[in-house]
Simulated scan of single mutants.
Amino acid sequence: MTVTASESRDAIGPGEISSEELVVWRMLQRAQVRITRLLETDLLVEHDLALASYDVLSQLSEAPERRLRMNDLAERVLLSRSGLTRLIDRLQRDGLVQREACASDARGLFAVLTDAGALRLAEATPTYLRGIRTRFLDVLDADELRQCAAMLTKLFPDAAEH
């Protein structure tokens, strides 16, 4: 007799996780961490640019007028607000980003991508995309990629927006 995943889950009480489910969860965590570390290493070695910095520059480049309010940027990147503030400080010192006051909110600030930041992003993007291609996309076939997208969309329906 074959037991389906949902039947297996029904045999486990609320708040419990089977050993198989825990293995899948840990594999997902490890895959994300390993791929992220490899992308980070590539960007640091080839462009002296941390992955979080790349993410900020990328988000700003895709925003209207290459600018985002700090609060909006913090929601789009995987950093705390204080972590983002420290990162923006470094990017500003490097001339890649500048801060601008928000005319409609005296307390609000925009992070704005500079021309130097856009150039650095353009130089680093082929490295970033190559890393995604070789470490993720080329490992999965087209059907597996569709399944992966369907599963991630099920987990995070609004994730594709950013």
Rank of each mutant, 00 (worst) to 15 (best):
A5C: 10
E16G: 14
S18V: 00
E20A: 15
E21I: 00
L22T: 02
L22K: 14
M27S: 07
M27I: 04
M27N: 04
L28A: 10
Q29D: 04
R37Q: 13
E40A: 00
E40H: 04
D42V: 03
L44I: 07
L44W: 11
V45Y: 12
E46N: 13
E46P: 10
L57A: 06
S61R: 05
S61H: 15
E62P: 01
P64S: 14
R69A: 08
R69S: 06
R69I: 03
M70G: 10
D72N: 12
D72Y: 06
E75F: 13
R76I: 00
V77S: 01
G83P: 02
G83A: 04
G83T: 01
L84Y: 07
L84R: 10
T85D: 15
D89A: 08
R90D: 14
L91Y: 12
R93V: 13
D94N: 13
D94V: 01
G95E: 07
L96C: 06
E100R: 15
S104E: 13
D105Q: 02
A106P: 08
R107P: 09
L109K: 13
F110W: 03
A111W: 05
L113S: 02
T114L: 05
A118K: 03
L119P: 01
A122G: 09
T125C: 10
T125Y: 06
T127G: 10
Y128K: 05
Y128H: 09
G131Q: 03
T134S: 06
R135T: 01
F136Y: 06
L137H: 09
L137F: 13
D138H: 10
V139S: 12
A142S: 14
D143G: 11
D143T: 12
R146E: 15
M151D: 14
L152R: 10
T153C: 10
L155R: 11
F156Y: 14
F156S: 03
P157S: 04
D158R: 15
A159S: 13
